[in-house]
Amino acid sequence: VSFVGNRGTFIRGYKAMIMDVEFLYHVGYIVTSVLGLFVHELFYSILLFDLIYREETLFNVIKSVTRNGRSILLTALLALILVYLFSIVGFLFLKDDFILEVDRLPDSKAKGCHPCSSEFFVMVWYLSPLCALAFFAFGFPSGAPETVTDQWERACDTLLMCIVTVLNHGLRNGGGVGDILRKPSKDESLFPARVVYDLLFFFIVIIIVLNLIFGVIIDTFADLRSEKQKKEEILKTTCFICGLERDKFDNKTVSFEEHIKYEHNMWNYLYFIVLVRVKNKTDYTGPESYVAQMIKVRNLDWFPRMRAMSLVSNEGEGEQNEIRNLQDKLNTTMKLVSHLTSQLNELKEQVPNALKQE
């Protein structure tokens, strides 16, 4: 209630209330707390995300993903298209190479292929041709087929399973989908195709596409950090009220720190705005009426932009000093002219006397 009242939500209308992001955030905060109280304690853990909202550095980590979300989504779409193409190639030509090791649950009802079936024989042949020949010649040992079939299963019998396998294992392995496929022999006819398939997936999907996504996120985070540092630098070297920089107060009677603390203290301006808002209009003075009207129309011309009283007074004092210096120089020059004039008159008087004597 204090947040809503201070934000003025009650007097802005329902539309402005619904469009206010911070108001919706606090409503969601309350709903989550109620769900944790009456439904399940798990909802309380969601409240830990409030730390991200309050800490600017963590919030920038989230913004690094959401700020260029369109670029990231389009790059991810490109990755899905490539995974789909590689899945089709695997389903059409490399279906028998998708044999994965699995750990079945003890009570799992999934059964492997029959020990005497051709599928089991092909599977064992790919795993170990020597064992397959031994099983074919001497028969299967007791319990061996079930153990082998329980540990391995085919993962590309359908196109959907191929897509899921390539998407799940291909993107999570550092070497791509080739890390989880069967290791082929160099004598097989499809050995060159497997090498090309594995290398293309590694270079195109793992190195290029995924690093494109990571690069966008990292560059966005670096930009956000640079913007934050720039804002902090501006706040440290520029007056928030008038916009004058620190170097304007060099060699002046008032320092920059004194200026932002006493002359243009931004909190004093905030207190004055609050005073104008809560004060009765009939009690306004002339300046207060002017400022109230400017605030109403969201006009900031009443702020002293690029000027300060201390600089104006210093400029005035400098002009006065220059005038005094010019006056002193003028007086000195007039005295010198008077002295030269007197000497010239004496010379004029001496010249006729000298001529008479000659």
Rank of each mutant, 00 (worst) to 15 (best):
Y197T: 08
Y197G: 08
D198I: 05
L199G: 01
L200E: 03
F201Y: 14
F202E: 14
F203A: 13
I204N: 02
V205H: 08
V205A: 10
I206E: 12
I207D: 08
I207E: 13
I208C: 09
V209P: 03
V209M: 03
V209I: 11
N211S: 10
N211F: 02
N211W: 02
I213E: 12
F214T: 12
V216P: 01
V216S: 00
V216F: 09
I217S: 01
D219N: 14
D219P: 00
T220Y: 07
T220P: 04
A222N: 11
D223W: 07
D223T: 14
L224T: 06
L224F: 05
R225M: 15
R225I: 13
S226K: 15
K228G: 07
K230R: 12
K230N: 09
K231I: 06
K231Y: 02
K231P: 01
K231L: 09
E232Y: 02
E233C: 03
I234F: 11
L235C: 11
L235I: 10
K236W: 01
K236V: 01
T237G: 05
T237R: 13
C239S: 07
C239T: 05
I241R: 13
I241T: 12
I241E: 10
I241F: 09
C242D: 06
G243K: 04
L244M: 13
L244G: 04
L244Y: 01
E245C: 07
R246A: 10
R246K: 15
K248Y: 03
K248S: 07
F249M: 04
D250A: 14
N251F: 06
N251K: 09
N251R: 10
T253V: 08
T253R: 12
T253H: 05
V254D: 02
S255Q: 06
S255T: 14
F256Q: 07
F256M: 10
H259A: 05
E263D: 14
E263C: 07
E263V: 06
E263A: 11
H264Q: 05
H264G: 10
H264V: 03
N265T: 04
M266Y: 13
W267H: 13
L270F: 13
L270G: 13
Y271H: 14
I273A: 15
I273K: 12
V276Q: 10
V276C: 15
R277V: 08
R277H: 10
V278E: 08
V278Q: 11
K279H: 03
N280D: 12
K281H: 09
T282K: 15
D283T: 13
D283N: 13
Y284C: 06
T285M: 05
G286V: 10
G286K: 15
P287S: 06
P287L: 09
E288P: 00
E288S: 04
E288R: 08
S289P: 00
S289Y: 09
S289R: 14
Y290M: 07
Y290W: 11
Q293W: 01
M294I: 00
V297R: 04
R298F: 03
L300R: 12
L300V: 02
L300N: 08
D301Q: 01
D301W: 00
W302N: 01
W302I: 02
F303L: 15
F303K: 11
P304W: 03
P304G: 02
R305S: 06
